[in-house]
Design a protein around this nucleic acid. Structure first.
Lengths: 249, 249
DNA sequence: ATTGACGACTTCCCTATATAATTGTACAAT
DNA sequence: ATTGTACAATTATATAGGGAAGTCGTCAAT
């Protein structure tokens, strides 16, 4: 208790004042000193209490607010937010970490050929059915073990000089680390569940019917035209998305 | 072009200056005026260009930076970030939206009984095997159709007054909207894939072996002790996680 | 009892200014 | 060639304060 009350900004620290105050308030909330629904001290009070300027306190409140820890209501005060499932966010960090370590991972090209677009592919890429696309299949290994199967359709259009660069980017390495000259503007991702087909099971060296993630992606260029559509298949045993909600000290 | 160059802060607008500038810069980036890797105008230049104070520009840069659109490097400048898969974040918004509309969704209690903890449950809840827990099974309907199956183990310990409140919170409604008096501090979530067992398939009125999401959760109280462990099962056909990366105007 | 005006308090937005920290360059000294 | 120094440009942090806008209670007028 007294520890929390005695906590103060250390002016000699390399840690900026605002960061220290974020830490202090977060810890106080985590310790239960302020519970969900409680009113935090007003900004003026925090200024006096910690000897910082209003702008600094505002900055701290803003940070806590878009961390989702508190919510500030004009004219009323700043309140501690309760635990909400909806605030949980999952990312691809775990998936990508596997592949970041170059040494342990490698990519095997299975196939790359030019083929007319099916109706479905044409729909996804906003082209007309029968237009030519480059179809690519890759197998990504981690520790000598196949983990990801990647299928992708890339628009084949010699009139677009972008294409060449796309192929680079789509070379996975670029996709993950983000090549600077990509010419890609945005992408849409979606996660589905599926069960492995016979072909997929063989490639991924596991059993048919096993549950798997399917990560679909579409990338668009600066004219908002789709350039590539594809998806990764990953057996469930190799992947898990995790998230945390609430306050962590 | 000229449109982008002529764009200015409207002082009479209700939209704050910082928000307007975020919008302006975002649109310029989305339009390809600044490409990945490019250097943005310096903060001083932006001040002159748009007639705002340095603090306001700093706020704008900060917002863009933690949106992942740009990255500011001290002493060098602010750069436009390339597209990176790792920045994609998925949330439970779609899942929860289904259940927010009270009218279309209802919860059916299947079971709630006190039972000794198995080894696995004890491990998850950090109690000793054989301790009593409350086991709960629920079925969540949306539009008269079963969508989610929920299983949960809650610690049964009369000496903890929290328990009573937990039961409230765990009453789903509270879980989603976040009861203010929850007494819960934090939670861990994980998404797995699985295939439906016979029992699950019957309850969810779909077929055995169908792929499904499994959303596991553990909630802890203010002493960091686990209070409840459980998971939702959702057939894949009803759920899809989506995310976007890149710049949206 | 209801309404309306006022004031106290709060968060929100913005300006103006100053100082520190980091980086890169140019140039002189070694 | 390498090193060191000085300088300019940049972002990062912080101070001090003012006005706008929202909320809530008080108190007088109706």
């Amino acid at each position: 208790m007294t520890d929390d009350l005695l906590s103060a900004i250390d002016r000699d620290s390399y840690e900026p004042a605002y960061a220290q105050l974020v830490r202090i308030l977060t810890r106080q909330i985590a310790a239960g000193l302020f519970r969900p629904g409680d009113l935090l001290p007003s900004e003026a009070q925090l200024c006096d209490r910690y000897g910082v300027s209003p702008m600094t306190v505002r900055r701290v409140i803003n940070i806590l607010a878009d961390q989702g820890v508190v919510i500030a209501k004009q004219g009323r005060g700043t309140f501690v937010k309760p635990l909400e499932l909806g605030t949980a966010t999952f990312d691809l960090g775990t998936l990508l970490q596997l592949l970041k370590e170059e040494s342990n991972s490698k990519v095997k090209f299975l196939e790359a050929r030019i083929t007319p677009a099916t109706k479905r592919t044409a729909g996804k890429l906003a082209i007309t059915s029968g237009d030519r696309t480059v179809f690519i299949r890759r197998l990504i290994y981690h520790n000598e073990q196949p983990v990801l199967l990647h299928r992708e359709h890339v628009i084949y259009d010699p009139s677009r000089p972008i294409i060449e660069a796309e192929m680079e980017v789509t070379a996975l390495r670029g996709l993950f680390s983000g090549g600077s000259k990509s010419g890609l503007k945005r992408g849409e991702l979606a996660i589905d569940v599926t069960v492995l087909t016979a072909e997929e099971a063989i490639l991924l060296q596991t059993s048919v019917g096993a549950p798997a993630f399917r990560l679909e992606h579409i990338f668009c260029d600066y004219d908002d035209r789709p350039v590539s559509w594809g998806w990764f298949i990953c057996a469930g045993e190799h992947l898990r998305f995790t998230a945390s909600i609430g306050v962590y000290e």
